[in-house]
Design a protein around this nucleic acid. Structure first.
Lengths: 220, 220, 220, 220
DNA sequence: GATGAATGAGTGTTCATTCAT
DNA sequence: CATGAATGAACACTCATTCAT
């Protein structure tokens, strides 16, 4: 049930990817050196370069993986056979949870979007960037669809679609900026936080569940 | 005394700060070299180092300036003698507008927050970081106050205060991620965009002006 | 016994040698990596290292082979039972032709001579270098012998023997610097070019056949 | 009288150029590291990079300087108001002498010509290469002119012009391959060697001065 | 025999920083 | 004030070589 659809390349590959995700998240692309990643792995650069031909390729691989994870987070909700509000709620909860549970990958994802400025020098890079932007578009479109449906049915209040969509998504993305996973790896009240965020975001669309309670524990 | 509150250091100083803000925004902290900033100024490194003892100090100066700008954006609304909803609206509009009009500085601000780990190597650095975090806290507190007031008066619906506050602020910050200033420097429909964003954000608090129109022009 | 004088090691060995000759010729010793050679073979490094213990050994092997080829080019002429002029002409034609027909190997040979300083680090290396220099000496001596004979018989005009010998040989080597094999592998007018070069070189020794025609076709 | 036509950039610049010429000569382009050059200078890489933006630029600078030197060697003879044979003799003597006296630069020059194979990756590089080839062409053309003149006047015997020209030049270039400057920097019998080489080369064109003596001292 | 993984030393290059002028 | 020179520590990436399989 938890086996990933695509075969996991190799344990080494996954290991490096994970380490890279954490480093890129903690320090950003430029400030992360391949040596840093290698040290994180307890190995030398050579290992990294054996699996990834360049730093940019490594970053792209992390970003691609992150994108997959993001899609996996919303697809169940998107595919549900329900009314737009319920579908949106499920997608949003899925996304908000991923934002916390796969924090490293998600932060890299956002960094990467800001990164058109790092000047895609090579043709290959430009293609990778274009592909990534296309995927982001596809991701946004899934939300846009459901929002449009809700607007048409008169159950959601949407002003300017693009602005509203961006605002809605940025709200769900919020945890990236302040959430820090428990160092002890314990369960955490991720669900409760996600619930609060989604409620706030959906109210912005005029959807109110009249439930004003919060179950977030105040932590340690 | 007609001198402005904070004396404008010197034209040279301001010039460098502005150039640095643009460079840091375009490429991020790590990817920006002092040479880049100097070239942007049409001078050499020497000038920069004459005014700022290190790259980090330059960055801190930009960040401090950005923080000032952010405060300036919300203070008029905060100081207004009006009900919480109106104060919040004014503060939010001010912030959203600054987010677009002073885009460079604001992006640097957000980058800097993610960056608690660019090695606070020196004691001096740690202090600078601490001071900055304190200022950010003060900034948030101004919003928190008004939100608390609104909640107490029953005119705003707030679940978990921290989550809601973060969500509210991140929504206003949204433009940093997708707004690009008109290259021709023309007026732009900043106000219209800000209006839409603020309406969305406030709806999340249960405040609805029932105005569902958008006046955003679709541009050139 | 019908086996050739030097047993052809193995097909694999020859294959690698040939590929290495081409790579070393195209890019020089330093710029050629073992990976490059392997890729040229359509295999991986392992194969190369299986037959040659180090890059330098591979290079030495190519150089040795090149030396053999050079000897093979002049020996028939040298062994001919004829007067010095005819012997010299045959040797020279043989050498000039080899210079074009075995272009890769010959270029490696010249490169190697310039390279007495690629750190003869190991004792083994020093021996290989010494052996190679001895062979080069033997090669030059074959020409020197015939030249001396010609001088003694008064049919060749030779000033300072070493200078003249070096000048004579470098002239024959000329094609290495500008000859490029036809990419379509067609017959080419190698003989005609060789003929012109040899005539020029022999005139320098005061030998003139009074034939001033050239049969070089101007190509496609 | 010995002041160079173009101002000598700066002493540092010249110093680096000279060191680079020696290193490139001794080890070739690929095998020479910037660190090697710096060590040769008794400084660090930084100095080299302060004056030359890249290794390739450094190499190009050396090559350009070498080309100048080569031109300076033959121009007096070329400009002389005399018959073709005398002009050719003067040019050839000049070239042969430069080949020994400026040995490092000249060897780099020849290496550079072989180097089209190092794949000119950047557009800028391609231009530099093209410019260099054009200069080499101009150089060859000066000889070709005089040879054509001599052939027209019936005082030189030239078969196929290109082959003969290349053979002639390669003969003059000969010392690059075997000449080693006296380590004690003493005067050396450069002129005597040049004289022998030029006589050999010109005999190849059917020009004979009937002087068969050599004045080369047998060295230490 | 041959491959893929891994390493460590190096190589070109960048860059923050210092300093003499 | 500002520049140019210089340095040393990184950093991305390459490569000869070794080794387990």
């Amino acid at each position: 049930m938890s086996a990933p659809a695509q075969k996991p390349k190799s344990d080494r590959y996954e290991e490096i990817l994970e380490a890279a995700a954490e480093c890129f998240q903690k320090q950003g692309f430029s400030a992360t050196s391949i040596d840093t990643v290698a040290r994180h792995l307890g190995s030398t650069k050579g290992r990294v370069y054996h699996y990834f031909p360049s730093k940019m390729d490594l970053f792209n691989a992390v970003r691609d993986r992150a994108m997959e994870i993001a899609f996996d987070g919303i697809r169940p909700g998107y595919d549900t056979d329900a009314d737009p509000i319920e579908r949106l709620r499920l997608m949003s909860m899925g996304h908000a949870r991923v934002m916390m549970l796969r924090h490293s990958y998600m932060q890299v994802l956002l960094d990467g979007l800001q990164m058109q400025r790092y000047g895609a020098t090579t043709e290959f890079q430009r293609q990778a960037m274009a592909r990534h932007l296309a995927e982001r578009n596809a991701f946004e479109t899934m939300f846009r669809e459901v929002l449009t449906l809700g607007a048409d049915q008169g159950v959601m209040t949407i002003g300017h679609m693009s602005i509203t969509l961006q605002s809605y998504l940025i709200t769900l993305n919020g945890p990236v900026f302040w959430y820090r996973p428990r160092s002890d790896g314990s369960a955490d009240n991720v669900d409760a936080i996600a619930h609060d965020i989604v409620r706030y975001a959906m109210r912005g669309l005029g959807i109110d569940d009249n439930d004003n309670t919060s179950t977030i524990s105040t932590g340690a």
